[in-house]
Design a protein around this nucleic acid. Structure first.
Lengths: 190, 190
DNA sequence: CTTCAGCAATAACATTTGTTATCAAATCTA
DNA sequence: TAGATTTGATAACAAATGTTATTGCTGAAG
């Protein structure tokens, strides 16, 4: 599972083994809640197999705000960073195989890599990437019509559209399931 | 102008003078473009007096995505970080007094402070804060009605609502000026 | 095999929001 | 001060989007 990332990090084998051994394997059926809204996050997850969504309760409605697939990491970074209750839930959509790491171990690793210029910059880059991503979501939300957002998702993350039930996609796009259905049928007719 | 920030950074006076002397003062009338969409950003601005908006051309429409007031810094961080053309314009709304720093100087300062654990963590915190902010905007966009977003802006940044022309506010909220007008009159009637 | 829950499409109707146009007040400028 | 520009409110109509209800399909559980 971890071998594929090894080159990226350029760590000597001891450190590498130390870090990777912090991860524990687990399996979770579909619809397993990995983190509850309001709970302080203690774990981060790496997905070996499966599909996960992040969602929150927005004025009574279940609103999905992110999707994750294989080889991606999931965690409530706000909760992690500031030790505050998570504003979101993390939940499997498909039966999944995950590797998780405890916050205390991850914190230790982060403290260590901050002393290494190469890794430190990678870390900072990662945070920036997250910022840019949220920026893009936000921009797209004010700029694009729902149809444009759907087409964009289809183009950028076709796997998501294939594997994720439509009502999650709809709430991610900020529209009703009915409207998403209409958009799809409109596109088909062209 | 800079004195107020000095304690936060805990730098010795030499360094402090070195860093602050990189900033140049300038005055700009209302509607001055400080950075053009498509241009690679070379400057970051600190606002002493005035009001600035960040906007972009979204399918032909002028869409405002951020506002800045006194003592805040403005720059296209994506353009800065990756040396790519800025996706946004930066423009004064009111006549403003600004302090700007060249990217080359800022880059040098950032490289230096990354060696200082205290400042490095402050820097990383700053990036995280930006991420959290965009997250909040994004969440609010999918979760809240325009009226809720307006009330929220009124609560969180009343200065903005007072000082910024309504059509900028409307585009920031993702609605038309007419609709914003309707929302305001609806609120008044209660 | 049967049953049931989850999922998706569609229709009918209601509500929200956008567009265009008009007017009035405020502000800036020559 | 007179004229232009910016700003904001409102009305009338059009388009987009939500809500509710119905139907049929599929796959999992018993």
């Amino acid at each position: 599972m971890f071998q594929q990332f090894k080159n990226t990090f350029q760590l000597d084998t001891d450190k590498w083994d130390d870090y990777t051994s912090c991860f524990k394997r687990m399996e979770a059926p579909a619809k397993t809640i990995l983190l509850n809204e309001g709970e302080v996050s203690k774990r981060m997850f790496l997905i070996e197999k499966g599909c996960i969504r992040v969602w929150f309760n927005g004025n009574g409605k279940d609103i999905t705000c992110q999707f994750f697939l294989e080889n991606e990491t999931v965690g409530s970074i706000e909760s992690f960073r500031k030790n505050i209750p998570s504003p979101t839930n993390i939940e499997t959509i498909e039966p999944s195989i995950l590797w998780w790491i405890h916050k205390r171990d991850l914190d230790r690793i982060i403290e260590e890599i901050k002393e290494n210029p190469h890794l430190r910059d990678m870390f900072i880059d990662k945070i920036f990437d997250r910022t840019f991503n949220y920026m893009k979501y936000f921009f797209s939300m004010v700029r694009d019509t729902p149809q444009m957002r759907y087409l964009n998702l289809l183009k950028e993350r076709p796997e998501i559209v294939k594997r994720v039930p439509q009502h999650y996609i709809a709430s991610y796009l900020g529209i009703s399931t009915v409207h998403l259905s209409r958009i799809k049928s409109k596109i088909l007719k062209k």
